[in-house]
Design a protein around this nucleic acid. Structure first.
Length: 469
RNA sequence: GUCCCCUUCGUCUAUCGGUUAGGACGCCAGAUUUUCAUUCUGGAAAGAGGAGUUCGAUUCUCCUAGGGGAUACCA
């Protein structure tokens, strides 16, 4: 039988990082097994579901490269089917109408809590004669769950987990307004969609027991279950915004590469020996549920950042150029022209070596397009002493003699200049960097000369020499 | 309160009864270098506590502590 997994977010906010990891695991598991990965939008909470959130989920999935099979299922559109199952359960004597008011329920819970009993519904309408039903009051439909014995979950990650049935009360299937609850919808949808393997956060573990009772009552086959641990913040507490519980769009905006985020998320709770840098192909090849850990992992920005640097260094120059061009365009207030794009791509090799995010990569490229005369950073300015400027002036003369312009001849010229001035290369390279980039940090100086070209290079050197000489 | 789960360097993790407890990030020191970064070398750094089982426990069992999750007419 082919494996079918699903990711089922509720569209009440962005696609947050924990959800993204759940989606990734489901996706990898399906791809590894040559199965299907489905997407279901759990939009039954009409008050909190928004179209913007649905878009954010689609966008986030696409950005992460998690493609789903078939059309997404919208749970709300299936509400009639859900209600039908609830009614069938009543007809079968496996569910019943309950007329307990909210106040009554609240009282019940308080009392149970005070007595040290689990705060659950006491089943007061379970066996009551329907003739007792009050009029003018819409009932909910509750599931008649077993009172005795235990429900055992056989979880691929958590192992065998046992719940005493008396801990689990008669859950509501259909609300008073006739809409289905999550418990009912999930069970029916997973069944109808042919989901064979449910991989989700372990905050659903207790739900799994109740759902298993329902599935059993319906006589449907049980799906395999895998409840993966949640991601925590750096202090071990629940992931909050401060910790990185942001939408994946926020990670994109912070300059993280999707491949880096994917690699990071994969290693959070899953491992393959000592492997750290794992390509998507390898991930699909290696992914399994056995190697998913059972304990919660803390989110660590430092490691994500390191991975991001690794992936940026490995990335194709044209790809990186396409990522930072929009950022530069926005700063400039106009699209980059073909020549600027060419310069950018040519400089990329030197730039990406020292970037840790797409944002810092964009920033580090700014000097390429700076208008003359350059505005120098304070510590760059300090390098341009009178002496240094005199040397730079003579270097400019020398550069003007060059017949051609490329990295090799530029390097030869600068080294020759250092020789004839009888100074170390650093003595001339540092002021030169300041003059060319306005900064003390940049790619290799010969690369800079090459990328900037003859006219800009000599112009910037003359500017600096004139202003400080 | 009740139920369920978890616990190896600061962090992510390896180990599936016998290891100098390994790797990665971060940190520290050094090397390379025209800056920064990269790269390379080295270093500090861990089995929550207590019982048991065993010739031998990080590994198996139990207890305690700590952490997390669930306890909705939310999903």
């Amino acid at each position: 039988m082919t494996i079918v997994t699903r990711f089922a977010p509720s569209p009440t906010g962005f696609l947050h990082i924990g959800g993204a990891r759940t989606a990734l695991f489901n996706w990898l598991y399906a791809r590894h097994n040559g199965g299907k990965f489905l997407l279901r939008i759990e939009d039954t909470d009409r008050k909190r579901s928004t179209d913007a959130a649905i878009e954010a989920i689609f966008d986030g999935m696409k950005w992460l490269g998690l493609d789903w099979d078939d059309e997404p299922i919208f749970q709300y559109s299936r509400r009639e089917r859900h209600a039908e199952i609830a009614r069938a359960l009543i007809a079968d004597g496996k569910a019943y109408h309950c007329y307990a008011s909210r106040e009554e329920l609240e009282e019940m819970r308080e009392k149970a809590r005070a007595e040290g009993r689990p705060p659950i519904y006491d089943g007061r309408w379970r066996d009551r004669d329907p003739a007792d039903a009050p009029t003018g009051f819409d009932p909910v439909i509750r599931f008649k769950s077993p009172n005795e014995g235990a429900t055992v979950i056989n979880d691929l990650v958590q192992g065998e987990v046992t719940f005493a049935n008396r801990q689990l009360d008669d859950m509501i299937l259909l609300r008073a307004d006739g809409t289905p609850t999550y418990m009912l919808s999930v069970v029916v949808d997973d069944h109808d969609m042919g989901v064979t393997d449910i991989i989700r956060g372990d905050d659903h573990l207790t739900n799994a027991a109740r759902q298993q009772q329902l599935i059993t009552a319906l006589g449907w086959p049980l799906p395999r279950l895998a409840h993966i641990p949640l991601i925590h913040g750096s202090d071990g507490a629940k992931l909050s915004k401060r910790h990185g519980a942001l939408g994946v769009d926020a990670y994109r905006d912070m300059g993280y590469l999707p491949e880096a985020l994917r690699n990071y998320l994969l290693r959070l709770g899953w491992s393959h020996g000592d492997d750290e840098i794992i390509s998507t192909e390898q991930a699909i090849d290696w992914f399994n549920l056995e190697n998913v850990g059972k304990s919660a992992a803390r989110f660590d920005f430092a490691k994500l950042e390191n991975l991001n640097g690794v992936y940026i260094r490995e990335a194709d120059d044209a790809y990186l150029t396409s990522l930072i061009a929009p950022i530069l365009s926005e700063k400039a207030g106009r699209p980059l022209n073909a020549n600027e794009l060419k310069i950018l791509e040519k400089a990329m090799n030197g730039l990406k070596e020292r970037a840790k995010s797409v944002i810092s990569l964009a920033d580090s490229s700014l000097f390429l397009f700076a208008a003359r005369p350059l505005v120098l950073e304070a510590n760059a300015q300090k390098l341009l002493t009178t002496d240094a400027c005199n040397i730079l002036g003579r270097l400019a003369d020398r550069l003007e003699q060059l017949d051609e312009w490329n990295k090799e001849v530029a390097e030869a010229a600068v080294r020759a200049a250092a020789d004839s001035e009888a100074v170390k290369l650093g003595k001339i390279a540092q002021p030169l960097r300041a003059a060319l980039t306005g900064s003390t940090v940049s790619p290799g100086i010969f690369d800079v000369l090459d990328v900037l070209g003859r006219e800009q290079s000599i112009g910037r050197i003359r500017d600096a020499a004139a202003a400080n000489g």
